[in-house]
Simulated assay, not measured.
Amino acid sequence: MFDWDDLKAFLAVARGGSTLAAAKALGVNQTTVARRIEGLEADLGLRLFDRGQTGSRLTEAGRDLMAEAEKVERASETFGARAQAHRRGLAGAIRLTATEIVANNSLMPALAEFRKLYPEVQVDLVISDKALDIQGGEADVAIRSGQVLPPSDLIARKLHDYDFALYCSRDYARRRGAPARLDDLKDHDLIGGEAELADWAGMVWMFRQAGGKAPAARSNTMGNLFHAVRAGLGIAPLATLLGDVSRELVRCSDTIAEAAGSSWIVTRRELKDTPRMRAFLDFLTPYFQQQMRELEARAKLMRERAADNDGDAAELDASA
């Protein structure tokens, strides 16, 4: 069985072109490198280099084995990095849960950036609009949204506040018109919710304004609700950070005070100070908050542009 130090000497000579260059790269003397190459060739029963006045050139066998030696080198580096990560307490898995709409719109780019910084931490994402039991161990950390967090022993960091308003698609507005007043909702198709979404304050408020009319369609997740509105199925309450920045949607109301909510990142008390969870929380919190600020700025710009366009249209109608 050959020694890893012999393989390092082999790679150094192959890359440097001579035992002298390899010795400098490895920080050992030239005799040691030459002895290791000779030992490796003896163990393999192969000549790996053609030696000459100008240095050492790989033989056909040497060229073929070079790629395999580089694989061993990478495996050794990975092994060392993982061992170091375990010493620091960073290596391991984090089970994260979030709703579909948060995961797809906010978390995916954040997780990609976190992975670049902490490749030894594996983040397993569980997408569910049902709140998993963090205290019971169904997940380690969660992004929770709502008007309040229920009392618990979980540790929470607030991420952002959200507003909601009613929206329809531009196609729906062309076909049916957008409601000019809340009283008009009774004459429009409304998309309702199922399960927990049916009892959400924004949904309850919309149907109360419409006099309790029956929904034209139903969705059981916020992600599906967004796509249903965008597809033209009807009107529904959506987060302004998503609705206002979408060119495919038309806003149909002011913000809904009853529906205003917030989001938090929550985890168990005994996990919050573990190195990998601390790294994750310290990365995700400011990343998510910056992302929300950028979305807010875009939404504000889109609202201003929409108001300018409405003003221009009104002037044209008046002049006509």
Rank of each mutant, 00 (worst) to 15 (best):
L225N: 05
L225K: 05
A23C: 06
A210H: 01
A12Y: 06
A260K: 13
E68I: 00
D312N: 07
L242R: 06
I256G: 09
R303A: 12
L238T: 06
L117T: 11
Q84G: 06
L233S: 02
A91H: 04
L132D: 01
E60V: 08
Q291V: 02
R82Q: 10
G146Q: 11
G212P: 01
D129I: 01
D310L: 15
L7D: 00
A228P: 00
T274W: 05
L90I: 12
S253Q: 14
L117S: 10
N309W: 03
Q84R: 12
K24I: 09
R63K: 13
G136L: 12
L271W: 05
E68K: 05
I155V: 12
A98C: 12
L132H: 05
Q291R: 09
T31A: 15
L58C: 07
D5G: 07
E315I: 10
A260C: 15
E77H: 07
V126T: 11
A210I: 01
I235A: 04
R268V: 14
S145G: 12
D282M: 04
T19H: 12
A23L: 11
S246Q: 10
S152K: 11
D64E: 15
L48T: 00
R218V: 11
E294F: 05
I94C: 04
M66V: 00
V33G: 04
V13E: 13
T19M: 08
I265H: 04
F2V: 00
K24T: 14
L117V: 12
T97R: 02
A156R: 05
F226N: 09
M1I: 02
L20D: 00
K272I: 13
K130E: 13
T99G: 15
A98K: 10
L281G: 02
R175T: 11
K272L: 08
L249Y: 07
L190I: 08
M203V: 14
D308R: 15
T19Y: 10
Q122T: 06
A313N: 11
L185R: 12
G16V: 10
R51G: 00
P179K: 08
L284F: 09
S246Y: 05
G261F: 03
Q147E: 08
G55R: 01
G261K: 06
L111C: 09
F288R: 03
D254N: 13
D308K: 15
S263T: 11
R174P: 00
L44I: 04
C168S: 09
L44T: 01
D312I: 13
N224H: 03
D43L: 03
A231N: 03
E60R: 04
